[in-house]
Design a protein around this nucleic acid. Structure first.
Lengths: 338, 338
DNA sequence: TTGTAAGCGTTATCAT
DNA sequence: ATGATAACGCTTACAA
């Protein structure tokens, strides 16, 4: 292995000077710089991160903790994180965490002993304990989750996004809109999304119709079933994840109902799943990749305080449209544009 | 920060002894062990990986390089890698690589200076250059790619799997089977999969019908179009990725053809995509997660030589069935079980 | 502008 | 069975 001393010898300077040049500090002549750089390339020298880390008490690694939940979502964020990290010269250390915080603690500890430059949490909330394990020197930030604690975070306004999405369905003329919600106990974003829906429905004077799923595909069909049991005349389904929405579309068609002619379906997150169903899913988009990039930048800046809210948007694809007509027994409602 | 000296002092022994106990080496009395362990827990001591890495020239880091291609596939493998690594006390350092090897070289260098314990390559092939950058001390292994070079790898037999898949379609009674192939130039598995299909078709005495896509969803519809142009009477489509197969299913239905009644569709990889289409995709399954786990184990064993072939299987779901009947102009072929 | 030297926290060698 | 001590390769005061 070629060390900094080898380079120093080759360039005829001291190790200290080599270190200065390599790290772009000040305090050497142009001529020296040239000679050192020549030596570096000709010897193919590379800084030993272990030695540097031991000395500086910092490494260029960013810890990235992602849950097993909604892989497609985490994948998008990860892409953004990885790209931004690479551009800034950081490596990404990956940990997959379940819903249990058992693993997350372990990872946090590992990250601390590796002297990580920072930690990014996808779809998980920063607790007191989290902060405590990490100690005061390692910053942490959460992504894609509406954090109410005021901790550093990058996310959309989930409540508002769900509200807007419901308004969108309302503006299409729908009145009987069912919510395929998530389990608030296990997934944090479930709660604000449900609140947004309920607020929009309340404002419009329509009763909410809610069933709970797990965010995963498998829970979509049973959830739809439950919704339809509560109100067989639903003309629109709003699912808080694309996977559940996709399952709803497929199950609806299985039952002989056309999408969107008979029932509209709206998803959430704009993951790749949304485009793989037929018709493709209208959905609420989060700028996932950009959120990942933003998280890295925010983490690495000194001022890493408070939440950062990113814009959401509603992408209308084929799975939503105006309602055909209400159930024969009910009054006919012409579709209305808002 | 609490160091090994603090523990030594607390336990009334030397740092060397603490090190021996912590690392489970020999050379200390039962009584000493007890005292040291008490000190470790009561001081909450944790080994500094940087210092250890500097000294031992090794860290418990496994580098994981995944392409942007077919995210769902990489995700599955990653899960297996991450789990196995954690169980063995290793951390995973993630790099996403494009199809270009530009990034991969950079990551390899980073991994080397971090003194990684080993490197896992998903869907990418180990080249001479790769090996050279890594040096002789860091083992590397590729996953989910049929490597012909004899380098360490974990994969299925892609040629054989495609052959078996085609035979499966043949056994259902299909004669006119189109292949939605991948681009052999950009994705390595494309080639053996195409060969397997061609071999099975040749043996059965049927002409191959081939169109090329990119493995991604978007290339599915155009690919199907091309296939149907070559032979409008195709009764089965075999796509070498689930994404292309999903696109084919959707496009087929868009054109008013029923799946599988009019046309059967078979996918490849058994990613989550396969279950999100309607009807759910029959597909060729690779034990992706298990392959990830196997890769970690193989990497960490001393004897890490040659390829390891994992079993593939064909999962019949709703998208395949016997052909209804041939084109009216042709002879009727009763469906036949093989 | 440049060099010397003292660690960073650990492990490994060599005594005892 | 245990302890001194010397590295590992780097950064950083402090000197010059």
């Amino acid at each position: 292995m070629v060390t900094i001393r080898d380079v120093a010898k080759h360039a005829g300077v001291s190790p200290a000077t080599v270190s200065r040049v390599v790290n772009g500090l000040v305090g050497y002549s142009e001529e020296t710089r040239r000679r050192v750089e020549e030596a570096v390339t000709s010897l193919n020298y590379e800084t030993d991160f272990m030695a540097r880390g031991l000395k500086t008490r910092q490494t260029s690694v960013i810890g990235l903790l992602a849950p097993m939940v909604s892989d497609a979502l985490a994948s998008e964020v990860m892409r953004g994180v990885e790209e931004a990290a690479r551009e800034q010269g950081y490596a990404v250390m990956l940990g997959r965490t379940g819903l249990q915080s058992v693993f997350i603690d372990g990872y946090l500890r590992t990250l601390r002993t590796y002297r990580a430059a920072g930690v990014i949490l996808i779809s998980a909330v920063i607790t007191q304990e989290t902060r405590q394990i990490l100690g005061p020197n390692i910053p942490i930030i959460s992504v894609a989750i509406s954090d109410r604690s005021g901790s550093p975070s990058v996310s959309i306004d989930d409540e508002r996004a769900a509200y807007d999405a419901t308004r969108y369905l309302l503006s299409l003329g729908h009145r009987r809109i069912g919510l395929l919600a998530g389990d608030p106990a296990s997934v944090f974003v479930a709660h604000p999304r449900q609140r947004g829906y309920e607020r929009a429905m309340a404002e419009a004077g329509h009763p909410p119709v809610v069933a709970h799923g797990t965010f995963f595909y498998d829970s979509g069909a049973p959830g739809l079933d439950e919704l339809l049991r509560q109100d067989p005349d639903l003309t629109a389904i709003f699912a808080v994840s694309d996977e559940m929405a996709a399952a709803a579309v497929n199950e609806l068609q299985e039952r002989g109902r056309r999408v969107p002619d008979d029932v509209s379906v709206l998803g959430f997150d704009n993951t790749s799943t949304a485009q793989h169903v037929h018709p493709p899913l209208s959905t609420v988009a989060q700028p996932l990749e950009e959120m990942g990039r933003a998280a890295v930048r925010k983490l690495l800046r000194a001022r890493n305080l408070g939440p950062r809210i990113m814009p959401h948007s509603i992408i209308a694809r084929g799975s939503t449209g105006p309602p055909a007509h209400q159930h024969p027994a009910h009054q006919h409602q012409p579709s209305q544009e808002l």
